[in-house]
């Protein structure tokens, strides 16, 4: 299996704070890779680097063999045409109907006639279970429907790679399971490379071929789902068994912190 993305020695900072600490891994083409980790571990930051929205402090990210960390905006836009991205908040434009939201990338990036585009939009909306909602505005949709409309837009240009940032966040379990099923189908039928950032374990167990687990900005696991389940790394076991963090400081330390000593 050829690698779609290779990350080597990635380091990034927000101000003085180091967020990603020299991380390296590969993402296999045509597979679903889940980037897993607790809140604040750096997984959304990593995703933003993979799609070229952030420049790292150090290291390289090869997308189909080309280093996106040194590309200018025009080169990055060309790469991003091959990527579909479903952001956490769906990022739909509220002043546009669902049809116009999904059609936007097609109108911006292709020379297709509008009659063809309208058929494509209806195909994408049917794929995500939103047939008949073309004329609705985002404010008229539920949270789950907005996610699916966002996914239809992410699929607009038939991307080779699809990125999801916390797709299940804010969804009920049934809607989240429907989205997981759709992710599995997209990989199978369209042979897409899919990267999902999440901390939802049921979702991970349904969709993942490979898992990259981050902890405090470092990769602590990179391998198959079975390998993750079998791992005896204490941090991984805590995550999989939903154990809380131990108190990190003593009562005396706590007193000193809140007393401002």
């Amino acid at each position: 299996m050829e690698n779609a993305i290779e990350v080597a020695g990635l380091v990034t900072h927000y101000g003085e704070r180091e967020i990603l600490k020299n991380i390296s891994f590969s993402i296999a083409g045509g597979m679903t890779t889940v980037i897993l980790g607790g809140s604040g571990c750096g997984k959304s930051t990593l995703l933003k680097h993979l799609i070229g929205l952030l420049k790292p402090t150090g290291g390289h990210i090869l997308f189909q063999g080309k280093d996106i960390t040194v590309m200018d905006e025009d080169e990055l836009n060309e790469v991003r045409r091959k990527m579909g991205i479903l952001f956490q908040g769906s990022a739909l434009l509220n002043s546009m109907t669902v049809l116009d939201n999904v059609a936007l990338p097609m109108r911006e990036h292709t020379k297709l006639k509008d009659s063809t585009i309208q058929i494509m939009v209806r195909m994408k909306l049917d794929l995500v279970g939103l047939s008949g909602f073309e004329g609705f505005y985002p404010s008229q949709l539920s949270g789950g429907m907005k996610k699916r409309a966002g996914l239809a837009r992410a699929l607009a240009l038939d991307p080779e790679m699809l990125f999801f940032d916390e797709p299940s966040a804010g969804l009920d379990p049934v809607t989240a399971a429907g989205l997981d099923e759709l992710i599995v189908k997209l990989k199978k039928v369209f042979k897409m490379t899919i990267v999902v950032v999440t901390h939802e374990l049921p979702s991970v167990f349904t969709i993942a071929d490979y898992v990259i687990m981050l902890d405090a900005g470092r990769v602590i696991f990179c391998g198959t789902l079975d390998g993750l389940k079998a791992s005896d790394n204490p941090r991984i076991r805590m995550f999989l068994e939903r154990q809380p963090e131990q108190e990190s400081y003593s009562p005396d330390d706590y007193f000193r912190i809140i007393a401002g000593e």
Binding site: T116, M120, M123, K124
Partner: peptide, 11 residues
């Protein structure tokens, strides 16, 4: 064939 090709045939 991508979705634009299929849509062209649907049209």
């Amino acid at each position: 064939i991508d979705s634009s090709g299929i849509a062209t045939f649907v049209e």
